[in-house]
Amino acid sequence: MDILNQLFSTFKVTSQIFHNGQYCGNWSIDTSGTQYMSFHIVNHGRCFLTVEDDPEVFTLEKGDVVLFPNDSKHCITNDESFSQPINQAETISFSEGIINDGTGLICGYFAHNHPLIRNVTAYLPNKVLLKRADLTQKNSSLTFLLEALLKESLSGDVGVELVMNKIAEALLALIFRQHLPTSQGIIAAMAHPQLSKVIQAIHEEPEAKWTVDSMAELCFLSRAKFSDLFKSVLDESPMNYLTQWRISIAYRMLADEKVSTLQAALACGYDNESSFSKAFKRILGISPGAVRAGESSINIA
């Protein structure tokens, strides 16, 4: 299983499109605050974008996509002066026909219900802006998915929401593949000729009795050189990465399969429930039992 498959299956990222319509007149929106990756796709018309406190203004046109990997505060509006009140305008359904002087927007977020996905998105910029014109020139696979999504958004057919969300999930996978940096982070580690062996082994056998020495042996490096290399690429120690991956697996088992705390502990390399529970709460700020019960108040330590 390649790294994208591992990440998506572990974090279970799903698209939730919450707006598929158009604005006319003066309007302004900011959809940040969900703690998820959010995205906007222009269906028709033109609008303007600013991100955080950056004064730079970006023009968005039909087929352009903007993704906010870390839920960055933003403003999208028809008003170049950015003077319109946020989230006050009413939206108009596409079923009423395309409004020529309006702006159509597909807006959504990628839900994941997993706190450690931030370890991946932290390596992405505060925004990923994809211009339709650039994608078309490159004959990118993203172009075909975007065209399908835009067409589906206007269809009104049965199952349109399901189809649009599945297309959006495929778009995210391609964006991750093209935009996750290859110099640092998990993608870089998986591409590294030495570190990839360790990452793959940890992912395949999280329950193994790993030590820094046993990881270093897989890379044919000394303990010190291995630790320095690992830290330089992943910005954390080997044992800390191992702990976080184990907790990721345990979280999924507890939340989805409702296994017992002891079962999760043993499956992830812990000898007893007590040490596992302490590590789990230290990393996620919530107990294994609370996750199994469906509580979602999670804070990353």
Score class of each variant (00 low, 15 high):
C219R: 11
V212W: 00
S274F: 05
G269R: 04
Y241L: 03
M253L: 14
A264G: 13
Y251G: 01
E273D: 14
W245T: 13
M253G: 02
E257S: 12
S232D: 15
V233F: 03
S274E: 11
R252F: 00
M239Q: 05
S214G: 00
L254S: 10
D256C: 00
F226V: 09
E217W: 01
Y270H: 11
A265F: 01
G269V: 04
D228C: 07
E273M: 13
E217C: 04
S237E: 04
L229K: 11
V259T: 10
S214I: 04
S214F: 01
A216G: 09
P238M: 03
N272R: 12
R246P: 10
L266M: 12
A255S: 08
D271W: 01
E273W: 03
V259S: 02
A216S: 10
Q263Y: 07
D271S: 07
N240D: 15
A224Q: 12
M239L: 10
L242W: 05
A265R: 05
E273Y: 06
S214T: 13
F276P: 13
M215V: 00
A255E: 05
Q244S: 02
L221K: 05
E257T: 13
A216H: 08
S222K: 10
E217V: 06
S227Y: 11
L234V: 04
A265P: 10
L262H: 06
D235M: 07
L229V: 11
F220W: 05
A264E: 08
V233K: 08
Y270A: 07
M253T: 04
R223D: 00
F276M: 13
D271V: 03
L221C: 08
A224F: 12
S275E: 05
Y251E: 11
S232L: 09
F226Q: 08
L266V: 12
Q263M: 13
L242H: 08
P238T: 05
L262Q: 07
S232Q: 13
N272S: 13
F230H: 00
N240F: 07
K225Q: 15
D213S: 09
S232E: 14
N240G: 12
S248R: 03
E236S: 15
D213M: 07
S274D: 07
N240E: 15
R223Q: 08
K258Y: 04
R223L: 04
S232H: 06
L242R: 08
K258V: 02
F230G: 00
N272A: 12
S248A: 15
A216Q: 08
T243Y: 05
R246A: 09
K225A: 14
Y270I: 03
L242Y: 05
S260T: 15
E236V: 12
V233R: 06
C219F: 06
S260L: 11
L266W: 09
T243A: 12
V233C: 07
D235V: 10
N240Y: 11
Y241N: 05
E273F: 06
T261R: 02
E257V: 09
L218T: 07
K258I: 03
C268F: 02
R252S: 08
Q263I: 10
S222D: 14
Q244I: 02
R252T: 05
S237F: 02
Y241C: 02
P238F: 07
E257I: 03
D235A: 14
T261V: 13
S260Y: 08
L254W: 13
I249A: 01
C268S: 06
K225T: 14
K258C: 03
F220L: 07
A250F: 06
A265M: 10
L254R: 08
N272K: 10
K225H: 15
E236T: 14
